[in-house]
Design a protein around this nucleic acid. Structure first.
Ligand code: ZN
Ligand code: ZN
Ligand code: ZN
Ligand code: ZN
Lengths: 156, 156
DNA sequence: TAAGATGATGCAACCCTTTGTAGTTGCATG
DNA sequence: CATGCAACTACAAAGGGTTGCATCATCTTA
């Protein structure tokens, strides 16, 4: 699976994204091609800075604001998700790759993976009772793991 | 109800917070007194900048980094919550005042209030199945309201 | 192909928040 | 008191991200 959920080669993939962009009156530029590839090829949650590093290897004069703007565009098109995993920078992820969430311990930074099914109930409730289409595709839920919780109890 | 959930006058209230701080080896300074009062007296979700404005009216040389550090301290003590309501700055709120959440439309900025009960189920699930104490006290859940969703459909 | 319109980018400036640090304040102990 | 220690603060600098704007690239239409 790639960024838009069809099985195909990278180049074809990019053509399809180009189509998606074109349908909205947007354009597939070399910068966007590189940025899409960086998110697509990352094994997991990549940051804007990391994407930027990859891009400037080929196009050294690309600006990081272009990276941020492109990522926002991709997020609006629902091709990537933006997630706060508690390390002070936003992480990006292909929207259709490995549906899941994360439980982030504020104390020790531990990250526990959470199946997406855990939130489908609340999503339906919010739609039915509040007429709201909540975006719960890739969340970082912050709190405390039991290990850190026990430590506090022991200290007291 | 005030910042620590007991019915009492402001001055007493501050003494109690002072006690809470003291138990952790921390001190109640004039700066902290002002910051606590600002959060406590705000009718709702106040920003660091707004707190800062109030504080410097009495102590003009207080620095905004002190405001941020104090708010973090209060958040760690679970006396205030930090919430992202999608307007580019964090909002602070007394933790025991009006338990609720917010549904934030990314399109039009509309904010729908959500009863805290809507998330008690998932909180229990996360604790039981994942041994994780999720902090779901005052969330801003982002997504799209039906009005904005209909607009997109109409355009297409 | 020319002209106009719209989208995209680089750059600089800015916004919100965090962090390092040196100096101060307050508490405890002798 | 004097001394020592830990907490606290102001200040400055930096970090992550956004925005305004002039310029550049691409598309449309004639
Ligand atoms: Zn993930
Ligand atoms: Zn932990
Ligand atoms: Zn609220
Ligand atoms: Zn809306």
């Amino acid at each position: 699976m790639n960024l838009f959920g069809r099985k195909q080669k990278q180049t074809e993939a990019h053509n399809h994204i180009a189509d998606d962009l074109s349908q909205k009156g947007l354009r597939m530029t070399p910068q966007r091609l590189m940025i899409v590839a960086a998110v697509e090829n990352s094994t997991n949650h990549i940051s804007a800075e990391e994407i930027y590093e990859q891009v400037i290897e080929k196009y050294p004069n690309v600006n990081i604001s272009t990276v941020y703007r492109t990522l926002d565009t991709l997020a609006e098109m629902r091709l990537v998700t933006k997630t706060d995993l508690g390390d002070g920078r936003v992480r990006y992820h292909p929207a259709d790759k490995g549906h899941h969430h994360h439980l982030v311990c504020r104390e020790c930074g531990a990250i526990i993976d959470l199946d997406e099914k855990a939130l489908t109930g609340i999503q339906a409730t919010l739609l039915r009772d509040y007429n709201f289409i909540a975006d719960l595709r890739h969340l970082g839920i912050s709190g405390k793991c039991v290990k850190c919780n026990r430590q506090v109890v022991r200290e007291t």
